[in-house]
């Protein structure tokens, strides 16, 4: 199918991008890699008047080390992220989850920041960002602000990003020694989106679990933390993972759709949390 007409702007800097967005108002759409936006345009599910292509802004690209954090530029492609030595060393969960995003050709174009800002609850990276306590650096006409992952996602495909704001980079705390991680994605065929995904990071201490953070993919309109399981795991021994995972779906109200009814999703969340935490604790 054929996209509708739109005006095209390709700013060379973040400032230009922000001012382009500010002058276009609600009728503008930010395009990063375009891997979600272009299919939506082709299906005529979106009719933006202006497309602001931020994919060429060099300042938004790349991964840098800032001591206890990695900073990942929003326009770093999935492929660059999953091959990046800093990411693999310090934020292996991101590499592991990114490898499950779409397929190699899409990963060559799609971006880390684009996937997060799109905020599809079936996307893999929002739950990962949540589990890692990432910080989202946002630039708008009034300057920069940093929003924690726990506050970034508001609803289905909705974030705190204002119409004149741009996600510029994501600050991810490094996982130190003693931390393990795992992303468990459950989907029917290789190409399909996660029915449920579980991102777990676990800190071990003397053979037991000191603390754990767990992000859930597609268990609601936004990515969620499995808080009850996290609490049950704090200070627990490995033998109690199963019981703790039994609380993974507490408080969730996932959608019922073609890919799974709500009760099945809740069941999967419990099973996959058990598997993810077990793997992370043994890693």
């Amino acid at each position: 199918m054929i996209p509708p007409s739109f005006e095209y702007v390709r700013p060379g800097s973040v400032e230009e991008a922000v001012s382009a967005l500010a002058s276009s108002g609600d009728d503008a759409k930010v395009m990063a890699g375009g891997q979600s936006l272009i299919p939506l345009l082709r299906l005529r599910l979106s009719y933006p008047e202006v497309v602001v292509d931020v994919g060429r802004i060099e300042a938004l690209r790349g991964v840098r080390d800032e001591g206890d954090h990695l900073v990942i530029g929003a326009m770093t492609t999935h492929d660059e992220v999953l091959r990046d030595p800093l990411v693999r060393t310090h934020c292996g969960l991101i590499a592991e989850a990114t490898e499950t995003v779409a397929d190699p050709a899409v990963r060559h174009r799609g971006t880390f920041g684009g996937a997060l800002a799109h905020a599809d609850p079936a996307g893999d990276l929002p739950a990962v960002a949540l589990a890692l306590d990432a910080g989202f650096v946002i630039e708008g006409p009034g300057g920069r602000r940093t929003v924690p992952a726990s506050e970034f996602f508001l609803d289905y495909l909705q974030t705190v990003l204002g119409p004149d704001e741009l996600l510029v980079e994501v600050r991810v705390p490094k996982l130190g020694a003693g931390w393990g991680y795992r992303y468990e994605k459950f989907h029917r065929v290789a190409q399909s989106w996660a029915i449920v995904g579980v991102a777990a990071v676990v800190q071990r201490s003397n053979g037991s679990i000191a603390s754990a953070r767990i992000g859930l993919t597609n268990m609601g309109a936004t990515p969620l933390r499995a808080s009850a399981t996290e609490q049950a795991l704090a200070g627990a021994d490995l033998g109690s993972i199963g019981d703790a995972a039994g609380h993974a779906a507490d408080g969730t109200s996932p959608a019922s759709d073609l890919n799974g009814a709500a009760d099945y999703r809740q069941h999967l969340a419990r099973v996959l949390t058990g598997r993810a935490v077990t793997a992370a604790a043994r890693a």
């Binding site: 299906l43 065929v189 290789a190 190409q191 989106w193």
Partner: peptide
């Protein structure tokens, strides 16, 4: 294992694209 056509109650084709109509790929 994978493919089936599903309509909604109004008769809209729910499995109207390769996103929802699951043609297996090589790993499947």
């Amino acid at each position: 294992l994978y493919e089936e056509v599903v309509y909604d109650a109004e008769g809209n084709l729910v499995t109207g694209s390769l996103v929802d109509y699951l043609v297996p790929a090589a790993p499947d």
